[in-house]
Amino acid sequence: MVAIRAEGLTKRYGSTLALDGLDLAIESGEVYGYLGPNGAGKTTTIRLLLGLHRPTAGRGELFGIDAWRDPVAAHRRVGYVAGEPYLWPALTSTETFVFLEHLHGSTDAAYRELLVERFQLDADKKVRALSKGNRQKVQLVAAFATRADLLVLDEPTSGLDPLMEVAFRQTVLEAKERGQTVFLSSHILSEVEALCDRVGILREGRLVDEGTLAQLRHLNAQTVEITFDGTPPDLGAVPGVRVVHAAGNAVRLEVTGSPQPLLAALAGRPVVTLTSREPSLEEIFLHHYDGSDHGDRG
């Protein structure tokens, strides 16, 4: 069963083309990472799929239901975490849960209690008194506790501290074990890497790449920065190494796969500093998706 299907889904706001002919087919039970920088059209996609905005062209379906035509039927199957935690300030977290659960019908109260513990939420506090991160937790707990068939999460970890991100990952994996479908919009590469079966990459309203993490090998590349005492050697010919930037005594490399060939090439060279880190999404976009519509799967 296909949980999410989009065919030529397009949205134009005035003169801005926010989403351009999106095609998606996400199977039930899949954890799908929807990766893109801010402004790429991730939230627009979610709004169209949930039937909050009307597509300019094309169609989107949740479990075969067009959410614009029949929002109530579509929303019954969805737990949604919005990009901004807009909630009712005068209600406490518990009251918010009770209200949302009442509308959804299907709720696991015991699991909700567990999540309140896990996310260390003071459920009797009014939403007004909560920080943005805590309001985000209220949204998360509410969405996961519904046990909806599909969880649509729009940048769900924004505002969460690292400890809570761990709790979030655990909760997503539990949902996956139960067979729930998860649509995770994010601009954080490591989060998507850790959780998702398949990844779609969105750039300026277009899906520029899609595949499993193994297929998108370049996402696993490491950025290595080295400074030498003197002129850097030519490392462009080393297997798995791409010179991204070279200036003076410093080079920035992108290393795919094992760093062993690079280490061998550096042996005996006057290396002053060497740092290795995960590339930011911005760097990946710059190097792989800049200007072209096809990903360079190197």
Partner: peptide
């Protein structure tokens, strides 16, 4: 204006 209407519109309520 506070975004809760959009929230309501994303819930299963007519």
């Amino acid at each position: 204006t506070s975004g809760t209407l959009e929230r309501l519109m994303s819930l299963p309520i007519s």
